[in-house]
């Protein structure tokens, strides 16, 4: 993991606003890059999408507005932490923005505290999201190693069934089950049953939701074992 300096990307069609914001963020110690329009951003050979940072987007823009940009980036898998700003006080737009996963929806004019607060939250979210992804990748890698039988067993194990019952359900012996169970535990590097359960559930949730985050966020407390360690 490269510890890069997070970059704040500002997109606003108003020149003076863009300039002012750039100045402010720079003066606050952030690295800023600005674009006059969404198109410019997309055209830009952007740095590694994995590089940390957040987006500061103006909602109302000609041609491609902020929300559309966000959805494009989300589709591309890059723009996770977005802070919207707008000159209109439009509730509808705000709700839409928040629903699409924006960190904040700032109403112009906003104070620098508000801005920096939102930016920090966005960066934190961005980092978190990254970490989550890493974790998910790790877990997924680990889960991929499981054989189908192990998957079956694992699924049953996490329901709290006794080995005896699982054996009966699957039609094998309890011993085999125990072996499978141990293998699953080992592959998944779960320290306890509860841990395993949590992992499985997480994976399930992610699969169901389609992406990490939200309801598919890892359980509070995370998983025992340092997923990062395996990265």
């Amino acid at each position: 993991m490269s510890q890069e300096l997070p970059i704040i990307t500002v997109v606003d069609d108003d020149d003076s606003v863009r300039r002012a914001l750039s100045r402010l963020l720079s003066a606050s110690g952030y690295t800023v890059r600005t674009f006059a329009s969404a198109r410019e951003l997309l055209a830009d050979p952007s740095p590694d999408p994995d590089s940390p940072g957040c987006l500061l987007l103006d909602v109302r823009m000609p041609e491609l507005d902020g929300l559309e940009l966000q959805s494009i980036l989300k589709g591309a898998g890059t723009g996770t932490a977005v802070v919207f700003m707008t000159g209109h006080g439009d509730v509808q737009t705000g709700v839409k923005a928040m629903k699409s996963g924006a960190v904040d929806f700032l109403l112009k004019p906003f104070s620098d505290e508000e801005l920096l607060d939102a930016v920090n939250r966005a960066l934190a979210l961005d980092a978190e999201t990254r970490a989550e992804r890493r974790d998910l990748n790790e877990l997924t890698r680990r889960a991929a190693k499981l054989t189908p039988r192990e998957r079956e067993v694992g699924a049953l194990v996490v329901t709290g069934r006794l080995n005896k019952q699982i054996a009966a359900a699957l039609g094998t012996s309890e011993k085999t089950i125990k072996v499978h169970r141990a293998r699953v535990m080992a592959k998944m590097r779960a320290t306890s049953l509860a841990d395993l359960v949590r992992m499985m559930e997480y994976l399930d949730r992610v699969r169901a939701v389609g992406s990490p985050g939200g309801s598919a966020s890892p359980p509070p407390g995370g998983f025992s074992g340092d997923l990062r360690a395996t990265v």
Binding site: D14, S16, V17, A20, T86, G87
Partner: peptide, 19 residues
């Protein structure tokens, strides 16, 4: 639109001043 028109300069002014 009008609000937007006002908010833009105001935002710029504030951000510039804070910067």
């Amino acid at each position: 639109a009008l609000a937007h028109e006002l908010n833009q300069p105001l935002t710029a002014i504030l951000a510039n001043a804070r910067a």
